[in-house]
């Protein structure tokens, strides 16, 4: 089994109206239930807006605390799931479903194998 980080990227500053978001969240709920029923779910959730982030950076031996996010762009990490799957194709089946539900780009990336 391989663990995969399934990340969802969403455009900055755009929050869909409730009548759009409601059905999407419902489908994501069903998706999460299916993940857990299949035993593929390790952990995951949506993240709050990037403006809620705080950044720590070592600078001249001192750690500076600043307002986040660290990476500024047109898109940000909106949420993620950690999945446990037999192979990439299995992880891609879940990722594809998430892409279809949200209409957002989904990145599937393996974790380094556990040490020891």
């Amino acid at each position: 089994m391989t663990q995969y980080l399934v990340s969802m990227y969403q455009p900055d500053g755009i929050v869909p109206p409730p009548e759009v978001l409601g059905p999407i969240m419902e489908k994501i709920g069903a998706f999460n239930e299916d993940l857990q029923a299949a035993g593929a779910w390790v952990f995951g959730n949506g993240l709050l807006d990037p403006s809620s982030a705080t950044v720590l950076k070592l600078d001249g031996g001192e750690v500076l605390v600043t307002d986040g996010p660290y990476l500024e762009g047109k898109e940000h990490l909106g949420g993620f799931d950690i999945l446990d799957c037999p192979d990439l194709d299995a992880a891609l089946v879940w990722g594809r479903r998430l892409a279809e539900i949200t209409g957002l780009p989904i990145e599937v990336r393996p974790f380094a194998p556990a040490r020891g």
Binding site: T2, P86, D87, L88, D89, V108, R109, P110, A112
Partner: peptide, 14 residues
């Protein structure tokens, strides 16, 4: 190897 791309003939649907 790392992403565990399977050595498999895809199913009929794929």
């Amino acid at each position: 190897r790392d992403a565990a791309i399977p050595y498999r003939v895809p199913s009929a649907t794929e």
